[in-house]
Write a protein that binds this DNA or RNA. Structure first.
Length: 424
RNA sequence: GGAGAAAUGGCAGAGUGGUCGAAUGCGGCAGUCUUGAAAACUGUUGAGGGUCACACCUCCGGGGGUUCGAAUCCCUCUUUCUCCGCCA
């Protein structure tokens, strides 16, 4: 969530930048500021009463000690009144804070200057394109057909065991999946990211810290019995490692990576575009995450983009990079680059990575701070990106590397798979 | 799952009703000494709100209560440890 102090200091700039998301934030901002005003006024009033009552208590203590209970009892009566007052004010204060926070949760992050105007994904700005789209001829099959033909992914079996969106990988399909995970993790650790294995279930506080709760509750599977949530992305447990922490400048940069399955309810998604591996309820993903000094976070974002580029170059897949427009930008992000691999048989682009700088938006909720060089406490910047999301990379490999006789394995993966082709 | 014990600042650890935001040690920072470093010595060192700056207010795992007054007493939740049971 945005910092109220930032809204106070740069009201117009905030409203103007939020307009890029096609929302008029004027009213929300004004309401927030007036609630903030009320909060501070109430707090001041309450503090004064508490100060008075603290002083009286000290006096009472002294009077009892000097054996003057009658005088003490007179003062006691006075404190009873003060108590009543402070109780009421406390109620007002808490209500005000709650109202303010509820409003702040609803205001999305302020887009960076680079974010282009636009309403939907069609307005995203293509900033990079690489890799030749192979000419597969008329026999090219979509990945779900290939998966069936070579018996490497069984979608029906997943339906039987769980339901739609839970595919079963088998044989060389399973091995290829594992190879990709290892390869991604190796690339990430070689680039200085520390590998983590994280919990797949998180508590409410964690879901709240990264912004899935309270609003996007429907996206996550909820284990009500224990009030835990299945993670929709490793971002949730990974970022929450640093919830409630106070770092020092020399701790930066913090770079970590982790492989996790991800679980998404994806309620209401049906039809052709969710076919095969395109959209699943359970999928694997390797994530990279950074916590940075605000001065360095955009530099870090570029590094992350370059890093993901490097991986796709090695895999030799046709891909492009989009800078998301205001209308398509995620709620918590200030600037996002999406990576899309070309699905040759489906003739469409598939999102395989999303690299974002959240600036202080998550850090504010997480209370993720650091001491700056002048000794002041400041919020850190958080960033994360997929490196990479498995199913669509797999789809891209299957489709782009298909031949009449089988599926070739990208060169860099052969040491991990132990085979160079998937055949009948 | 059952029985018992505990949760205090970056860490360790004292504090059982008022003078406690909290002793002491370690660590951190600054200085003295030194060619430099180490050691030693001296000083300093929690967070949040609030203020131009002070004042002031809040915080001793979370929430609630008793009391004029709570780190300290009571209730409750969470977590950790010990013992028992179960178990990959």
């Amino acid at each position: 969530m945005l910092q109220i102090a930032a809204i106070r200091n740069q009201k117009e700039a905030v409203i103007k930048a939020l307009a890029k998301r096609n929302i008029d934030a004027t009213e929300m901002v004004e309401t927030a500021l007036s609630l903030d005003e009320k909060r501070r006024a109430t707090q001041t009033e309450l503090d004064a009463i508490k100060a008075e009552s603290n002083n009286l208590s000290k006096d009472i203590g002294a009077l009892f000690q000097s054996k003057q209970p009658q005088k003490a009892n007179v003062l006691k009566e006075k404190t009873t009144q003060l108590k009543e007052q402070s109780k009421n004010l406390e109620q007002v204060l808490n209500d005000t804070i709650e109202a303010l926070n509820e409003l702040l949760y609803k205001i999305p992050n302020v887009p960076n200057d680079l974010v282009p105007e636009g309403n939907s994904e069609t307005d995203n700005e293509e900033v990079y394109l690489e890799g030749a789209i192979p000419d597969l001829g008329d026999n090219a099959l979509p990945h779900w057909e290939l998966a069936k033909k070579y018996d490497i992914i069984d979608f029906e079996l997943g339906n039987k065991i769980t339901g739609a969106g839970f595919p079963v990988y088998k044989g060389k399909g399973a091995k290829l999946q594992r190879a990709l995970i290892s390869y991604f993790l190796d690339k990430n650790t070689a680039a200085g990211y520390t590998e983590y294995q994280l919990p797949l279930l998180v508590n409410e506080a964690s879901g709240f810290g990264t912004g899935q709760l309270p609003d996007k509750e429907g996206q996550m599977y909820h284990v009500t019995e224990d009030n835990l949530y299945l993670i929709p992305t490793a971002e949730v447990p990974a970022t929450n490692i640093y919830r409630d922490s106070l770092l020092s400048e020399k701790d930066f940069p913090i770079k970590l990576t982790g492989y996790t399955p991800c679980f998404r309810r994806e309620a209401g998604s049906y039809g052709a575009h969710v076919r095969g591996l395109n959209r699943l309820h359970q999928f694997d993903k390797v994530e990279i995450l950074r916590i940075e000094h605000p001065d360095n976070s955009y530099n870090a974002l570029n590094e992350m983009v370059e890093h993901v580029k490097g991986i796709l170059q090695e895999l030799q897949l046709p891909y492009r990079i989009l800078r998301l427009c205001g209308g398509d930008l995620g709620f918590t992000s200030a600037l996002t680059y999406d990576f899309e691999v070309y699905s040759t048989a489906q003739e469409r682009w598939l999102e395989i990575s999303s690299v974002s700088n959240f600036e202080t938006f998550q850090a504010n909720r997480l209370k993720l701070r650091f001491k700056n060089s002048s000794g002041k406490t400041e919020l850190a910047h958080t960033l994360n990106g997929s490196s990479l999301a498995l199913p669509r990379v797999l789809a891209g490999i299957l489709e782009n590397y298909q031949t009449d006789s089988g599926i070739k394995i990208p060169e860099v993966l052969i040491p991990y798979t132990g085979f160079s082709e998937i055949k009948m």
